[in-house]
Write a protein that binds this DNA or RNA. Sequence first.
RNA 1: GGCGCCGUACCCAAGUGGUUAAGGGAGCAGUCUGCAAAACUGCGAUGCAGCGGUUCGACCCCGCUCGGCGCCUCCA
Length: 504
Amino acid sequence: MLSFYNQLTGKKERFESLVPKIVKMYVCGVTVYDYCHIGHARSALVFDVIRRYLEFSGYQVEFVKNFTDVDDKIIKRANEQGVSCETITAKFIDAYDTDMGRLGIKRATKEPKATEHMAEIIELVDRLMQKGLAYEVAGDVYFQVDQYQAYGRLSKRKLEDLQAGARVEVDERKRHPMDFALWKSSKPGEPSWDSPWGPGRPGWHIECSAMSIKHLGETFDIHGGGMDLIFPHHENEIAQSCGATGKEFARYWIHNGFVQINQEKMSKSLGNFFTIREIFEKSKWPEAETGEMLRYFLIGTHYRSPLDFSDKSIEEAKNALNGFYDLFKRLKESEYRATADEGMIEAIERCKVAFREAMDDDFNTPVAIAELQRLKSDINKFMGQGLSTEARKIARVEFQLLGNNLGLLQFEKWQFVGKSRSGGIVVRPGTASLTITTFAPTVTVGQVSPETELSNEQIEQQIAERLDAKKKKNFAQADEIRKSLASHGIIIEDKPDGTSRWKR
RNA sequence: GGCGCCGUACCCAAGUGGUUAAGGGAGCAGUCUGCAAAACUGCGAUGCAGCGGUUCGACCCCGCUCGGCGCCUCCA
């Protein structure tokens, strides 16, 4: 039985969907005014894995992930560049799709945009006005926080506490300092829509309420996003939605932890972030492999814990994944013995159970991965005893099936070709706190191997020559070829039958 | 000021009131191999920041201390 931590209740709870076999899930996407960084990648990935696992568990998942395409930052960016907001948003939505695609993140079933839901947004604001939960001041509409008794139930804060520490200047026109904008009157030159309160645009929080209600209904199962959205964004969404409908909004709330650099939150204001595309561009590995390494690294830590990004962690992920792909390569080789077939089947069954237990327990991906590692090790042992060709195929399929939950182990093989070897990611730590705030992280060359690439044909040619030398017991020459290939990053593995396999 | 999180071996990282504290990476030793690689085997925290307390028993519960961080403002 699946259970996971519900931020709303502050406890790990057994999950039961509102409608049997169907899960309705809404996740806050991004504001499209810039390229996504690894923090965005983590969030998208966490919910991608959750979605995959829910599907694996037999649910049909209605997964809505929005794009915020009306916002101050977008307007600012458009003005800076002298282009329209649409130009900016179209560009970064496109970039989002590309970057997330490279990480193997599946598309949501619906990806609504705020600008396409003005009617629903206005209607929702109007409902709140009708109910006396909102008020208008000179074309702006605010939600009146103290009219919603349960305000603070998600973030576990009291209205009084919030006021005490408020660092923002209080807008005198508000009835309560924490009241937030549902509708903002537009200034000249800003995107605007007609409304009962004059031309304007929606506040940040209302779009998510409007879109989730429209696409998933007034009450739905799961709402997710980054930790930082708990307050005020999600708190406000709850207030607006419940206020308007009088019903429960999302029943389970899931929030992912941050990606950090040198123990600090990765953020634009600290200037310590890496964009996803910059990592792909600077990676010394091909795109598909880089994507899988990143994925492995990002889900190697439980989704609610912080995780520190570094070049070393990517390298570790690569080495860990290599173990699987090395095994897969050997699983493809034929064998007539079936000595250990039975044991292998047992091991696979054990792994399946353990894998599910791990994922059922608050989506514990690190443990799920550990189970796959254990299976890898088991199968290596069985292979030494003798696994039939059929058993080998079964093993490969099982890795693929379980790995699919994590979006891992789906490739036929890892192929380190077609990309120049001149990248690598290095995270340079700041030396003092003062440095860190102004520190711009650099993505630079890691391990440089300036050797020119060899084509597969060239490599095969060399290996044939070496084989020949070996047959003639000319080991000196054979070793010479091995050394030469090694200098190009090619590793040769001799098989028992005298032939060789190789890898980059 | 309010709310909250974290501190597990060289590194990453699970975990739990009572088995041998998962798994990975790196390292070392061995088996195998013409050499090598891979694989396999073994080694690696008498201890889970520190100090107290509760308990028959705590890494896990409580308190304090030290260290690091997050939210309360746009933020994945």
